[in-house]
């Protein structure tokens, strides 16, 4: 037993020294082999990583963003559960699966309802924007006239965000609460928002730099030297649509068909 062990060991040693001498004869040191091996490993892992996470197909988030009280949470419950619940101002996000029934297979997307209060909305947007396949920007059409400046500012922030420009998710502007009598139609909102974004662009570019000193993570909105138009946006495909997640009158129905078809178009 003992002897056979020794024999094997001797054999191995001799073969190793043989290979070593062979490698040396080719002028390749052992170090180099190690380096090449590790290089291959690194490349392989990055390729696998890219394949699994890098593709846009693997970003599954549909973000519901917008001001507070625009109807995001109701829209969320309507989309994910098909019911309208009583809601309050959100303190944190809601997140749930949303199945899109394609012609043959089902794809699961994640609907994320971001809180809309000024103090926390940017924090949550920051947290979820990397996973954004689509952004639904919800607007309260009833109070749009009053809140247009705030709406424009938040939309401006989304559209000029560097990271979001890189990912370039589809953006849809959902003019919610169309059941209200005083609600604006999407064409009115489109025009006013375009005008307002032009102003915001002007004032934001003149705004003071922040105390951190570093470069801002934002890109220029639209084309320089021209008045802003939504068609100028090369990265984002923006669509306007109307919907209402709650019905005020008895005979009315919730209207989410446009929104649903927009979401299924993302798959």
């Amino acid at each position: 037993m003992d002897r056979s062990c020794c024999e094997i060991r001797l054999e191995m040693q001799s073969s190793i020294s043989f290979y070593k001498s062979m490698l040396d004869s080719y002028g390749i040191s052992q170090n180099l082999i190690g380096i090449i091996g590790s290089l291959i490993l690194v490349i392989l892992t990055t390729v696998i990583w890219k394949l699994t996470f890098g593709r846009s197909a693997h970003r599954t988030g549909i973000l519901l963003a917008g001001l507070s009280d625009a109807g995001k949470t109701i829209l969320f419950t309507q989309l994910t559960a098909g019911v309208a619940k009583e809601t309050h101002t959100s303190l944190k996000e809601n997140e749930a699966q949303y199945l899109v029934a394609n012609n043959q297979n089902k794809t699961a997307l994640t609907v994320v309802d971001l809180p809309g209060h000024d103090a926390i909305r940017l924090q949550y947007l920051e947290k979820y924007k990397d996973n954004a396949r689509g952004i639904v920007f919800v607007i309260d059409s009833g109070t749009f006239q009053k809140s247009v400046k705030d709406v424009a500012e938040f939309l401006f922030h989304i559209l000029t965000d560097k990271q979001l420009n890189k990912i370039a998710p589809s953006v849809c502007i959902a003019c919610n609460k169309q059941d209200l009598l005083n609600s604006k139609t999407k064409t009115v909102i489109f025009n006013q928002l375009e005008k307002e974004l032009n102003t915001v662009r002007k004032t934001q570019s003149a705004a003071l730099s922040s105390t951190a000193g570093g470069t801002e993570d934002s890109v220029f909105l639209g084309r320089k030297g021209e008045d802003f138009q939504f068609s100028h946006l090369s990265k984002f495909k923006i669509e306007f649509l109307e919907c209402n997640a709650k019905c005020s009158a008895v005979d009315e129905d919730v209207n989410l068909n446009e929104l649903k078809s927009w979401i299924s178009s993302l798959v």
Binding site: H117, D118, A119, I120, L122, Q123, K149, D150, E153, T199, V200, K202, T203, Q204, A206, A207
Partner: peptide
């Protein structure tokens, strides 16, 4: 950290130039 950021983030729009316009 989150709470502090939340406190320092303005709870309303601060854009003086826009208001001056």
């Amino acid at each position: 950290n989150e709470s502090l950021v939340q406190i320092l983030t303005p709870k309303r729009r601060v854009d003086i130039l826009r208001d001056v316009l």
